[in-house]
Simulated scan of single mutants.
Amino acid sequence: MTSVSPSLLSPDIPTHSQVSSKPLKLGIMASGSGSNFEAVAEAIQNGQLNAEIQVLIYNNPDAYAAVRADKWNIKAVLINHRDYKHREELDKQIVQTLHQHGVEWVIMAGWMRLVTQVLIDAFPQKIINIHPSLLPSFKGVGAIEQAIEAQVKITGCTVHLVSLEMDSGKILMQAAVPVLPDDTPETLHNRIQIQEHRILPAAIAIAVSNEQ
């Protein structure tokens, strides 16, 4: 596990450009605003991450992530989970789409669906998720609300490899965020998100370097 403060993320954290000369082919999955998707795109643009985003998959027709993808001239594919009776059927379509676009690593950047063995088997140890808590604390939905209700003094965010168990798998990187006395879910979320945008690209680089 790598745990860092924001001030240590650069230049101490290795970038993918330092560990490989071949651009990494990423597929990103998002359900909402897509701010972490955009953070990865910006990291690629500024040279922190030697990668290419092959496709964005989103499951919510109203997801703003699709608008961000259009701005970056990245193909966005809607795979609406409501069109599938079983999670396995949904994941089969996701895998097919990812393979069609030559994806090597999958980044779940605000993907609000549980994955099945279908997706995990298609990309073994190559699926990365970001979660707004210091795992293993506060798994699942409402992690920020859980932290406030528990009256903890510190929470944060975690980037980890995906396993079948929700919000589990090997931790790649974490960043701590203090919980202030007057925090609301919105104010705490905003501060956590700043750190998510910092550590997600670096954690992708770490995961790739560990795999090589």
Rank of each mutant, 00 (worst) to 15 (best):
E42V: 07
A69C: 10
L24C: 09
T184P: 08
M29W: 03
A43Y: 00
Y64H: 10
M29I: 12
S168M: 03
K71E: 12
L26K: 00
L78G: 07
A150T: 00
S33H: 10
Q18N: 13
H101N: 15
I53D: 08
A175H: 08
V106W: 08
I130T: 03
A122K: 05
Q45S: 13
W111P: 13
T184F: 05
I44A: 07
D182S: 13
A207R: 05
P14G: 04
I57Q: 02
I44F: 01
L56S: 10
Q193P: 02
P181I: 09
I148P: 02
H86Y: 14
D83N: 15
A147V: 02
I171N: 11
H101L: 14
L98P: 10
L78A: 03
N50G: 05
V141S: 12
R68F: 01
A66M: 02
I148F: 05
Y58A: 10
I199Q: 04
E196M: 05
E165Y: 05
R113D: 10
K153V: 11
D12Y: 12
L200F: 06
Y84W: 11
P185D: 09
L134Q: 07
S33T: 13
H160G: 06
L90Y: 15
M112K: 11
I53P: 02
Q146I: 13
W72G: 08
L172G: 02
S209M: 10
D12P: 00
A202D: 07
G142W: 03
S21D: 12
L188M: 07
L172E: 01
D167C: 01
V67I: 15
E52M: 14
E42R: 00
H101D: 15
D91Q: 09
V159T: 10
R191W: 03
I128S: 02
S5R: 12
H81M: 07
F138V: 04
I107G: 03
K153T: 13
V179L: 04
G140P: 06
L164G: 09
I154T: 13
D12R: 15
Q100F: 12
V208A: 00
I206G: 03
P132N: 01
V67F: 12
P124F: 10
T15E: 09
I130A: 02
N129I: 05
H197D: 08
I13S: 10
I107L: 11
I13F: 14
